[in-house]
Nucleic acid binder design. Structure first.
Lengths: 339, 339
DNA sequence: TTGAAAGCGCTAACAA
DNA sequence: TTGTTAGCGCTTTCAA
């Protein structure tokens, strides 16, 4: 049997209302009543029924996060870091986090609609924004609070945190060029992802600035997994005139590329340079360690979460658009020079 | 403005009751009324208010998962795989998943209590069971449904899925011994974790069966991260008489150990053998690739989730205790022989 | 086949 | 300072 307000009311001889107000620390309840109620509530082990509270208050103290997946899973450490950041910040601020995964398409749309209409969450954190992102239109049309990790193509106005991928990739290319590389390949993300656009743009601008020829046959799209990186890098390495450096657009693909190179007897960091993007914990401990761009994913998760909650609470946002500069972590995989 | 039953009732000229029944496909509603109601509901874009439904039905169609963390985060790919498995299975079965992280202690206890009393979730998935696991007593005392990934020390009776770690570690030691190793070290998990017990036991039994001397100075406890693995392996390698093989109790520590060895100029798989446990996606792509024990984490997540939901629904469990045999994945890091 | 009415546990406007 | 009453949106007896 679960303890409810009624039970406390009975035990104290007060009315349900008074008990409710005492528990919520209203100041029109006498101090004695308050402490009496509090004591009894504690004794009885009272916890409010969340659903009743929410039905009444019309908000849920819960934020939603639907992770977009292409395959069935999201084992990318990228997401775990981010998730941890969001979840912990949410908990600090007194919010629950409802998590699910959907692949883009009808199901994803339905999940958002259901959550919005059913008032299941107070707002959404959007991750991995896409060029034409229907999630954004759904949310905006419903006038539903959300904050995103990533920007969107159209000049849509919404709060976001993003890292400056263009800047980051330019940094990488500059680094590789300074090491003497001239044939630099890129392992790009699926083009519908917004960050694919920015990273590719940075890659190309970097080449231009380094006075290098862009060669489209050296730009291959991978699915952001190790396996994808392995496969695409294999193609690059089997080219008649293979690249001397591969800039992967995320760490997982970079690791796949390293394997592909190593399987061909190449020494990564010497015979070929390979770089990543994300700086997942593994990067520091791979062999060779991975030169990559650091994104503070855990903190980013926290920032987006905090933005969202400010939005939900109707508080003014400290900042509406946050663009972070990734930091280049030079490690072994890019080598120190090429002869 | 959100559409509710009342709106549909008005639009169709029916009563709220009838609309509700039509929508829930009761068979005492005429076919025409039903289709009329359905159509209008669709037109208006109706979605039931979750809170009202739950308050009424007294269950939530939500399962809870509180991830225990020692530090602030849970970036272990181990958890992401498991989480994906649980979440996707839950979604298939029509359940939401409420996720949060708490470090063991007062806060964790409070989180469970609040979720139970507030009827916030219908049941819990417990992960990473501990020897004296107070979560289990809380849940059992409240008679609250849960299923665990992992067993517990006391002869407590609850449904679980677990992998046979003892068996797995024996497999590893047997493998290493067959390769000629005699000084085999172990990177063990913190001893309060239940699986630490089983893995260590397997390690020791494996030594005995291989007629090898157990040397307690070769058993070091690490915190399951790469960094922890790196630090503890460093100690082992700097011993006057270092081990020729290191069996880490999870992949992340194994990667750390590999780095430590490589930093000392050792060639992993030749100068020293290193093995892991988990077979996270990275293992196949590290350099050298990691010999480890495969646990189908994604599937395990699904199994535990399904168990829990059967429990919640009061259905008989297909199986109450599931013990899986991990499979040894022999890769490069253990080497093929030692001379 | 349908509708009126009660009630899930809580909060809040209003009265006393 | 306290209690009465209504109502959040839904489901479910019970009666018509």
């Amino acid at each position: 049997m679960v303890v409810k307000l009624k039970d406390i009311a009975q035990a104290t001889g007060k009315s349900i209302t008074t008990v409710s107000r005492a528990l919520n620390d209203y100041d029109d309840v006498s101090a004695e009543t308050k402490s009496l109620v509090m004591r009894v509530a504690k004794e009885l082990g009272y916890t409010p029924n969340t659903w009743a509270q929410r039905l009444q208050k019309q908000h849920t103290e819960t934020i939603g996060l639907i992770i977009p997946t292409f395959g069935p899973r999201f084992s990318d450490p990228f997401f775990s870091e981010l998730l941890a950041g969001i979840g912990n910040r949410a908990a600090q601020l007194g919010y629950d986090m409802l998590v699910s995964t959907r692949s883009p398409g009808e199901e994803e749309r339905a999940a958002y609609q259901a959550a919005i209409n059913g008032r299941r969450v107070d707002g959404f954190v959007l991750v991995r924004t896409r060029r034409q992102d229907e999630r954004i239109s759904i949310l905006q049309e419903a006038d539903f609070p959300f904050a995103a990790f990533g920007r969107a193509e159209e000049r849509l106005d919404f709060p976001f945190v993003d890292e400056d991928s263009t800047y980051g990739m330019k940094l990488v290319v500059e680094h590789l060029a300074s090491l003497g590389h001239e044939r630099i390949a890129c392992l790009a993300p699926p083009s519908e992802l917004m960050f694919a656009h920015y990273r590719l743009q940075g890659f190309k601008e970097g080449l231009t600035e380094a006075d290098l020829q862009a060669d489209n046959s050296l730009i291959l799209i991978g699915d952001l997994t190790q396996r994808g990186g392995y496969e695409q890098a294999s193609k690059l390495l089997d080219l008649p005139s293979p690249p001397t450096a591969i800039a992967a657009c995320n760490d997982l693909m970079a690791f796949g590329a390293m394997s592909a190179a190593q399987d061909r007897g190449l020494m990564v960091g010497k015979d070929i340079a390979i770089t990543g993007f994300d700086d997942i914990p593994m990067s520091e401990f791979s062999h060779p360690s991975l030169t990559t761009l650091h994104q503070p994913l855990y903190q980013i998760g926290g920032m987006v979460c905090e933005m969202l909650i400010q939005l939900i609470r109707g508080e003014p946002l400290d900042e509406k658009y946050i663009l972070l500069k990734p930091e280049l972590m030079v490690r072994q995989s890019s080598g120190l020079s090429i002869d």
